[in-house]
Structures are given as C-alpha cells and as structure tokens.
Design a protein around this nucleic acid. Structure first.
Length: 365
DNA sequence: CGAGCAAACTCTATAGGGAA
DNA sequence: TTCCCTATAGAGTTTGCTCG
C-alpha cells in the first residue's frame, strides 16, 4: 500500500515535470497512477489538496529542479532531502545511546506541513488542534499574572537569562528538523499575513518581516518600531510595537502542534502546568480531509466534497480579504450575502470564523 | 570606517553533569 | 548504568556600540 508521503512526493514530481498552472486534477491523478502503478481514484481528494498546496501563489513556490537547486547550493539542507533516494534521506545511524538502544535519528522535514516529506511518515497536520490550541493560548495569555503559567514560559526565560560567558565553548549544532525548525500552527489572525496555517517559527518571523517591509510598516525614524496596519493590529492588538516586543506578541499566535513529549523540558513544564489544559492541544482526528456541507461547497463553488479544515479556513480568509470584509476597528468580519448564507449572521468576530466553519465540516465516517 | 557583537524574544533538541 | 535536570545553541530582525 502506497503511503500518502509517496503520493505527495509523486504529485510534486508530476507537477514539476509539467506545467503546474495548466495541470488538471484528472491528468495529475492519471500520471501519478501511472508512476505508482496503482488505482488512486479513491485518493483524488488527497491529490487535489496536494496540488492546491503546491500551487498556492507565493506561499509554496514549487521547489526548483534538484539540479538547479544543487547548483545554487543548498541553503537549507533539509529542503533538498526529499529529492534524494530514500536511502540517502535517512541520516546515518547515530551513535547508540548509553542504554545500547539506537537513538532516534532526526528526520528531515520539509518546510511545508501539508506535503509530507518526512521520514518516517509524520503525523498529519492537526488543523483542529491549531484552532483549539490557539483558543487555549488566548485564555492563558489573558490570565492574570501570578497565575501559574500553563505552558511554562517562565523556566525557559530563566534559562535564557542565565549568564552565557561562563559556559565553555561547544561544537555548534546545525539547525535540524526540530527546535526552531519545528512546524507550529499559525493563528487564524496571523494566517493572512504569513500565508500558511502552519510553519516553523523562523519562517513565521521571516514572513512577518517580509510583510512589514512590503507594506512599509517600519517607522522611518526608528526602524525598530513597527507601525501596525489593520491586519497587524488585529494580531498584536496595538497600534505600534517594536521588533523585540513583536516576538513576544507573536508567540500568542504560534501554536504547538505536537503532543507534549516526556522530555526533561516538557516534564518540567508540565509540573507547573495544568495537565488537563495541555491535553487540549492534542491533535484531533479531523486533520484528515473532512466532508464539507452543501452550503460550504456552494460557497467554494466547487464540486469537491472533502477538504482539510486548514485549507477551508484559508479559503474563507482569502474570500474575506478579496472582498474587504474585515472590520478591523471591531476585529470582526462583516458578512456579505454569500457569507451570511454560509454562517447565518451579518457579522462575526474574527475568532469565531473557525468555530462557524466547523459547523460545515463533518468527520468522515 | 568596517566588522563583529549584543540587545529581546520565542521553543526545543541535545550535551553534559550529577544523583540514584 | 540509567535517569533526571540544567544550560546552551539555533533563526530571524535592526540598531548602536566597541574594537581593530
């Protein structure tokens, strides 16, 4: 049985070999079937989602051909990994741990979570968990200070504040798939700015700075100062901020997607946290394509009946932005007749979009 | 004058040390 | 020997200071 990762990889390969803009779903499905020698008619929805993710303008440029990219020099070594034969993608075995059990190898991870270039197969993007975790974090950040930090920021901050000069020099570690490169969820408010529902923190910061420059939002007298436009104001909830505070404000909109692991750091955090609260961040089972309601299908104007929640959310936001339905003064959305028909209200808070959208997404039986 | 560094801030993998 | 805990590096940004 072919895995979704293999299908996704094959879809990308087919698109790269043909004109992506002119590619039709049946054509791509046919070519992928031919490549894999399998009947993939039942995977059409998945393939369509992969095509859409690959073709989304500016956000997911199709990776250049391996040769040209190799010639340019791999800026990020992980980007290239999925072009290599599988044997080469798997990192060389690490020295065994003291227990004599081979330590888990780091898995190369493509920057795009929707296209699974991870080995072994990664957990699918928990789109619902993104929203659920976001709301949780909103509550946590709104909690009065002095309340025990639920996600344990304090220990980290303390660690960061420790004197550095006393530490002996160590071999520098290269950025791997985890840590800073770990894919996190993006809040619905931040998604229109960075353009994705999930990406690594560094990519989020990078995209945010690109957005700031593109919209000329830096104070010309003090370039550290960021002047918020309507979209940024909705995210940061302030008219202006500076580049240092921005990172802190940004953290409210970056949502961990993984289960809490029992690492030392995580255990430490959980000790200070309400465990029941952290369980909310566990991904739901509906990160898989979900069946969409008739109303939503009509709204999208497509015959497709399955979609990832994150993709649906992204499309709704695209519509809102295209039709300028944002009421930035009230952090709400003014529904035009089409949205009114979908959501059944004349306006709704920004934070309510995902909830209302969820009413139109049904889990596959 | 140019280069290098520190500044704030985020999270997590991992090295290394200490305790059991 | 194994487990637990602590400290650190890493990306990204711009400005201002220090040093050669």
């Amino acid at each position: 049985m072919v895995s979704d990762q293999e299908i996704a990889s094959c879809v990308e390969s087919v698109l790269r070999q043909s004109d992506p803009a002119a590619a039709s779903l049946p054509d791509v499905v046919r070519q992928v079937e031919a490549k894999l020698g399998l009947d993939l008619s039942h995977k059409a929805a998945f393939i369509r989602d992969q095509i859409e993710l690959l073709l989304r303008p500016s956000v997911h440029p199709l990776p250049p051909h391996p040769q040209s990219q190799a010639a340019a020099g791999p800026h990020n070594p992980y980007i290239l990994l999925h072009h290599l034969p599988l044997q080469q993608q798997i990192p060389p075995p690490k020295p065994t741990s003291s227990a004599g059990v081979a330590a888990p190898a780091p898995f190369p991870q493509h920057h795009h979570p929707g296209i699974a270039f991870q080995y072994p197969p990664p957990p699918p993007l928990p789109a619902a968990a993104v929203v659920a975790a976001y709301h949780l974090q909103q509550q946590l950040h709104q909690a009065p200070q002095g309340v025990p930090a639920a996600v344990g920021l304090a220990p980290v901050t303390v660690a960061m504040a420790a004197p550095k000069e006393s530490a002996p020099p160590r071999a520098k570690r290269k950025g791997g798939p985890g840590g800073l490169n770990k894919v996190c969820g993006v809040s619905p408010e931040l998604q229109p700015i960075v353009g994705e529902a999930a990406m690594s923190r560094t990519q989020i910061v990078k995209q945010l700075w690109a957005y700031i420059r593109k919209n000329n939002l830096q104070d010309p007298n003090n370039k550290r100062k960021i002047i918020c436009n309507d979209e940024l104001r909705r995210v940061f909830e302030t008219d202006s901020t500076d580049m240092f505070k921005m990172n802190k404000l940004l953290s409210k909109h970056i949502i961990p997607l993984d289960y809490p692991k029992d690492t030392g750091a995580e255990s430490k955090k959980l000790k200070a946290a309400d465990v029941s609260a952290t369980e909310i961040t566990k991904p739901d089972s509906d990160e898989y394509p979900m069946v969409i309601s008739d109303s939503l299908a009509k709204f999208f104007g497509r015959e497709e009946r399955e979609i990832l929640k994150s993709v649906a959310l992204s499309r709704v936001w695209d519509y809102i932005k295209a039709n300028q339905l944002e009421d930035s003064a009230n952090s709400s959305i003014l529904c035009d007749p089409k949205l009114q028909e979908l959501f059944g209200c004349e306006s709704l808070p920004v934070s309510g979009i995902s909830d209302l959208l969820a009413n139109h997404l049904l889990k596959k039986s």
